[in-house]
Design a protein around this nucleic acid. Structure first.
Lengths: 182, 182
DNA sequence: CGAAATAGGTCAGCAATATTGACTGATTTG
DNA sequence: CAAATCAGTCAATATTGCTGACCTATTTCG
């Protein structure tokens, strides 16, 4: 990143707005639609994730913890590498979150059966309860969105979202791939 | 947050997995479908946002800068408060990002016409070019997803996403509300 | 068997992005 | 003129991410 070199005095940083009006002249047909999709994705993600924040804050947890809980809940017995691949973060970032969840009794670890190097992660009953509570907070919003879209709409939603993901994640969603490749 | 009190030695933290099999016994019908939606949202957002990262890194910018560029580009003349309401971050967080963008010549500010307290934000030509470049990197992924879903699918996607957003954001999307209330 | 590869944990240090609270200045509004 | 509003800023802090290095336990392979 750039060093925080001291900026010039306020007045000097005032640049007049561009002469050309912002609506760009040469634009493809589908452009506006795609910009809209960006907006939709941003706002839906923003507002969907925020509803669980109250609960998380109560417990001194963050969204990173929620994500881990969610994916362990969805994949009982998932390995650390599997979780790393899904979350796309580093071992160290996950370690903090995972250690907190283990310490607080939400996540249990057990060595793998065949390969004893593996740590198979599962939710404890407390973990399941918490995940459930977090999910319930998002539930109504989701259910109502499903109703608004109808079965056909939901199908379209799924197709579009699937197509936006990387191949590995798509396979994971479909149940034909392992978390490690998501 | 909890203090990072030293954890017990490794062996003691190994808790046996819960007796009850993780697939919960009492679950509503639509539950699985809704869990899936969570996954879809996560992966689509993850993979859609990541494609622009290479360009951003080249320039020493982050995703926060991208978001600001996007929404200024979409709303030429937006005020600082408007941007704050959309991004749902604090003035200080935005200030860093915005100052960087102004310093580097991507964003221009001009005082409001009627109310001269306002700073109307627009993209400079360099800013428009950069935003365009970032958008283009996401374009193919998006176009292909639109094709995969078809017009009906896109419609369902939109309906569902809209329904997931807060009222203010929905109005903003529809063009019937101001950014300030998004 | 022994070497290499793999899964995982940990340490130290750092960077980006967010937070709160308090304060200032310019401008508009009542 | 006083109060409210929009914006900028400072100081301090938290969360979440990163890199690189190094360690242990275990499996795999020549």
């Amino acid at each position: 990143m750039l060093k925080p070199k001291p900026r010039e005095p306020k007045a000097d940083r005032f640049v007049p707005p561009p002469k050309v009006p912002p609506p760009a002249p040469v634009v493809d047909v589908g452009d506006a639609e795609m910009r809209l999709a960006q907006d939709l994705l941003f706002f839906a993600y923003r507002d969907f994730t925020t509803v669980a924040d109250t609960i998380l804050e109560e417990l001194g947890l963050g969204r990173a913890h929620h994500r881990a809980l969610h994916f362990i809940g969805r994949n009982p017995g998932i390995t650390v590498s599997g979780l790393l691949a899904i979350l796309r973060i580093t071992k160290q970032s996950l370690a903090r979150v995972l250690n907190a969840l283990v310490d607080q009794g939400y996540v249990a670890q057990a060595p793998g059966f065949e390969d004893r190097r593996l740590r198979l992660l599962t939710l404890t009953e407390a973990g399941q309860a918490l995940e459930r509570r977090l999910f319930d907070s998002q539930r109504e919003k989701l259910a109502q969105a499903y109703r608004a879209a109808g079965p056909l709409g939901v199908h379209g939603f799924r197709t579009l979202m699937r197509a936006m993901m990387d191949r590995g994640a798509r396979d994971y969603i479909d149940g034909t791939g392992s978390p490690e490749d998501a």
